[in-house]
Simulated scan of single mutants.
Amino acid sequence: MKQSFTKGIFAAAILSLTITSCTSENRDEIVSPEEVAVQANAENLNSDLLDCSYVDVNWASTAVLKTGLPLATDSNFMTGQMTKIAAYWKRTKPALSFVSDAANQNSTYNAISYSTGKIYYGYAIFADAKAKGGNIVNAMILAHEYGHQLQYAYSLPSVKENTARPNELEADGFAGYYLRRPTGYNQDTFAKIAAAYEFAQSIGDYQTTSAGHHGTPPQRRSAVRLGFLLAQYDLTAADFDYNFFYYYTGVLNETYRTAKNTRFPELDAYMSNYTEELKQIQTNEISAEEFKSLK
């Protein structure tokens, strides 16, 4: 049986699972292949979609695993981003699949990263993210999920708590980092990233004692802002982890003042300009609207 590591939006999961593989034998052929191809060409539908009869225990029993999204352009964007994110970190690309549920589409409002090298992305969260902010929001979510793949690979995060918060906030940071990097999503102004992350912070939670706690909305905002700032420098995943928690924790308890970041002095000099701002984001002194205007 597969065990869920965290619950809720943007989740990570560990241990193994068994699923039915996606093959042409599982495909739901309502019309002939020729008719599907004609319709797909006319409406930009994905004529190569395959589906399976079972996903896993993290999804509704009526959910179906898909090889793509209804629109071919959406599928191409997501698979292209998956390739680009993995290439940026110089690692193997995870298997990206999508989850649909005709009986209850809201059940697919999630994305989960598995320790077995898979990412499952729900139809509902993709559609809502695209409607609210366009492609960059789904690029952000995918980069967040890939952040969990980095955590699996390098035994991160280095900070542990009784909830999923450090895992999820660091994944937010990894996403902010990737969105800014020139060879990543290459967004050079924070306003573009902040608009995408309004989607993420909107599903932050205040269940601070729950095992599945992902961080409050202000904490999620500060995590992506920190990731964006760290993207001024080219860092390995391990170095990112070190700096992320050095500043994320340090700006609240001010330990960064008493234990200087001697490992990264140039980065520390740069970050010293932003520590007070990060604290104000974390404590909600900088509102969501002000957050969007940060440079």
Rank of each mutant, 00 (worst) to 15 (best):
L65G: 03
K66W: 14
T67P: 02
T67K: 06
T67W: 02
G68I: 05
G68P: 03
L69Y: 00
L69D: 00
P70Y: 08
L71A: 06
L71E: 11
L71P: 00
A72P: 00
T73A: 15
T73W: 06
D74K: 04
D74C: 05
N76Q: 15
F77H: 15
T79H: 10
G80A: 10
G80H: 07
G80E: 03
M82Q: 12
M82K: 06
M82I: 09
T83K: 15
T83S: 15
K84C: 08
I85S: 00
I85V: 11
A87I: 04
Y88L: 14
K90Y: 07
R91S: 13
T92D: 14
T92L: 14
T92E: 15
L96F: 08
S97P: 00
F98Y: 04
V99L: 04
V99K: 01
D101T: 05
D101E: 03
Q105H: 10
Q105R: 11
S107P: 05
S107Q: 10
S107Y: 05
T108V: 09
T108K: 04
A111N: 02
A111G: 15
I112V: 15
S113M: 03
S113L: 04
S115H: 07
T116Q: 14
T116P: 02
T116E: 13
I119R: 02
I119V: 14
I119C: 05
Y121F: 15
Y121P: 00
G122F: 00
A124D: 12
I125H: 00
A127C: 06
A127H: 08
A127V: 05
D128V: 12
A129G: 14
K130D: 01
G133M: 05
G133I: 02
G134R: 07
G134C: 09
G134Q: 09
N135I: 10
N135P: 04
N135M: 08
I136R: 09
I136M: 05
V137R: 01
N138V: 15
A139W: 01
M140F: 10
M140T: 13
M140A: 15
I141C: 02
L142M: 11
A143M: 04
A143R: 00
H144W: 12
H144L: 06
H144K: 05
E145G: 11
E145F: 04
Y146M: 12
G147Q: 05
H148N: 09
Q149D: 06
L150Y: 03
L150C: 09
Y152K: 06
Y152V: 09
A153T: 14
S155M: 08
S155I: 09
S155V: 07
P157E: 03
S158H: 06
S158N: 12
V159E: 06
E161F: 11
E161L: 14
E161C: 13
N162M: 10
N162H: 11
R165W: 02
L169C: 04
L169W: 02
L169E: 01
L169Q: 01
G173M: 06
